[in-house]
């Protein structure tokens, strides 16, 4: 069975060839029970993986890791024993059908949901629950699947707000308006103007953000995340509901942001074409489990991915070695 996955036109293809296939981590506590099964399904894929490991240990450049993360909502398992490590400077796409747990991953990383089990490793620190209020200072910025802008603020002020984590001046200093408060204000405005310019939003910068069309609001949200100069950028379906042109523009911005600032990007996206052309690695989720992880090309050949996307009931494939 083959699945034709076409690549989008965004000229963003980058270091994908250098990122080798990664099978599920071995011998680590909290290993997902299906991870070995995962490896068994792809005997051919093992070779490049071991070659890669010989060259450099997998965890050496992990800037963000989920270890054995499980999360459930009243009996519904949103995430089951998820392990995932994100490498510095890569664009890692997370794909999977609706309800697969993609947003839950971003919500766990940003501390919006505390995981039931497992932990998140961020900048060498281990967190049972990531402290959301410190997230920006830890160098993580995110966008939301459903817009989370401040509709009562202009585009410029929404983006300036993205510098909130840098503000040190008290409100009294801000009332007086000189010294540190003034420096912070000017700095935030200047950086916001830069990012707005970069994302080609300048003509709209005085508009109330709530009055913009959906696609542009998504772009403003990206701007608000970028202005924080994050090391890690979590994008939850930044291109959902966009036209093909808008998607291409957005894809261009994401790669440009990575290339310009060296930002590590975790990207949730449904459009397979965009994912294949944009990402260095792809993690595929289904029913809260990671069912595949590798380069776009490897993931495209993966039987489980094909099954999940074609909606084939998993128990019918038990003969192929999948146990769930």
């Amino acid at each position: 069975m083959t699945l034709v996955l076409t690549g989008a036109s965004a000229g963003a293809w980058s270091a994908a060839s250098t990122a080798a296939f990664e099978t599920a981590p071995r011998g680590r506590p909290g290993l997902a029970p299906d991870a070995d099964a995962d490896a068994q399904v792809h005997p051919a894929a093992k070779r490049p993986a071991s070659l890669y490991r010989a060259a450099e240990p997998e965890t050496s450049e992990a800037v963000l890791e989920l270890v054995g993360v499980s999360l459930s909502f009243g009996g519904v398992a949103a995430l089951s024993e998820v392990d995932l490590s994100v490498r510095r400077g890569e664009i890692l796409a997370i794909i999977g059908p609706n309800g697969a747990g993609k947003s839950s991953i971003v919500n766990v990383i940003s501390g919006v949901y505390p995981p039931d089990r497992g932990h998140v490793r961020l900048k060498g620190q281990r967190y049972g629950q990531v402290p959301t209020q410190k997230l920006a200072r830890l160098g993580v910025a995110r966008t939301f699947q459903n817009l989370a802008l401040f509709p009562g603020l202009s585009v410029l002020d929404n983006v300036v707000a993205g510098r909130a984590h840098r503000a040190r001046s008290s409100f009294i200093e801000q009332l007086a308006g000189f010294g540190r408060a003034k420096r912070e204000r000017l700095d935030a405005r200047e950086r916001a103007a830069d990012v707005i310019d970069f994302l080609q939003l300048s003509p709209l910068s005085e508009r109330l953000v709530g009055t913009l069309p959906y696609g542009l609001q998504k772009r403003v949200e990206l701007a608000r995340a970028l202005v924080a100069e994050p090391d890690i950028l979590l994008l939850d379906e930044p291109m959902a509901g966009m036209t093909a042109t808008e998607k291409n523009e957005m894809a261009g911005f994401v790669t440009a942001a990575r290339d310009r600032f060296g930002t590590t990007v975790v990207l949730i996206e449904h459009d397979i074409g965009v994912v294949m052309s944009l990402s260095d690695r792809v993690a595929v989720f289904d029913h809260g489990r990671r069912i595949a992880l590798g380069t776009p090309a490897e993931v495209q050949r993966d039987q489980r991915v094909i099954d999940a996307y074609l909606g084939v009931a998993e128990d019918e494939n038990a003969g192929e070695g999948e146990e769930l």
Binding site: T132, Q133, L135, A141, A148, L149, F150, A161, G162, A164
Partner: peptide
Amino acid sequence: NETAARIIG
């Protein structure tokens, strides 16, 4: 948006 506010610091 309280959650978004918290996330941006």
